[in-house]
Amino acid sequence: MIYAYAKLTVTNPEALAAYRDKAGEALARHGGKVEQASGAALAIDGTPDMPDVAAILSFPDKDSALGWINDPSLADIHALRRNAGGSDIVLLT
């Protein structure tokens, strides 16, 4: 199992809502799932740039995570997330 941290700064809530409708199915195509997501993350040390939405994603392995982010058939779904505002995803290898 491998994990990724997703951080979103939302400027377009409608695009985020459309993304959420499709995100789970898109993740599942590559064995991924949302382990935890929050719109109310809490900094417990330091002064991080706090996101509007934070999520921990899981995948069976690195290749599955890379397959998900690079899957051409999911490009429009990833575009919805990116159009929702700032979007950073870090794979914890």
Rank of each mutant, 00 (worst) to 15 (best):
28 A>V: 01
28 A>P: 07
29 R>C: 02
29 R>A: 03
29 R>M: 05
29 R>F: 01
30 H>Q: 07
30 H>P: 07
30 H>F: 07
30 H>N: 09
30 H>S: 05
30 H>R: 07
30 H>Y: 10
31 G>D: 07
31 G>A: 10
31 G>C: 06
31 G>L: 06
31 G>S: 08
31 G>W: 12
31 G>R: 08
31 G>F: 13
32 G>N: 10
32 G>L: 08
32 G>S: 11
32 G>I: 11
33 K>W: 07
33 K>N: 06
33 K>S: 12
33 K>D: 07
33 K>H: 14
34 V>F: 15
34 V>P: 13
35 E>W: 12
35 E>L: 15
36 Q>G: 00
36 Q>K: 13
36 Q>V: 15
36 Q>E: 09
36 Q>N: 01
37 A>Y: 00
37 A>D: 03
38 S>Q: 01
38 S>R: 03
39 G>C: 03
39 G>A: 14
39 G>L: 07
39 G>H: 07
40 A>Q: 11
41 A>S: 14
41 A>D: 06
41 A>M: 12
41 A>Q: 07
41 A>K: 01
41 A>I: 09
41 A>N: 05
42 L>G: 00
42 L>I: 13
42 L>R: 12
42 L>C: 05
42 L>P: 00
42 L>Q: 12
42 L>S: 04
42 L>H: 07
43 A>V: 03
43 A>Y: 04
43 A>P: 12
43 A>W: 05
43 A>L: 02
44 I>N: 07
44 I>K: 07
45 D>N: 05
45 D>M: 07
45 D>L: 12
45 D>H: 09
46 G>F: 05
46 G>D: 09
46 G>I: 12
46 G>N: 10
46 G>P: 08
47 T>Q: 14
47 T>S: 15
47 T>E: 14
47 T>K: 14
47 T>Y: 14
47 T>D: 12
48 P>K: 09
48 P>L: 09
49 D>C: 05
49 D>H: 13
49 D>V: 15
49 D>M: 11
49 D>S: 13
49 D>L: 14
49 D>F: 08
50 M>Y: 00
50 M>S: 06
50 M>D: 01
50 M>T: 06
50 M>H: 00
50 M>Q: 04
51 P>W: 11
51 P>K: 11
51 P>R: 12
51 P>H: 06
52 D>C: 03
52 D>P: 06
52 D>K: 04
53 V>S: 01
53 V>K: 01
53 V>T: 05
54 A>T: 15
54 A>G: 15
54 A>Q: 11
54 A>D: 03
55 A>K: 04
55 A>V: 13
55 A>E: 10
56 I>L: 15
56 I>K: 08
57 L>C: 01
57 L>W: 10
58 S>A: 13
58 S>D: 09
58 S>Y: 02
59 F>V: 04
59 F>R: 02
59 F>K: 03
60 P>R: 02
60 P>W: 06
60 P>L: 02
60 P>S: 03
60 P>I: 04
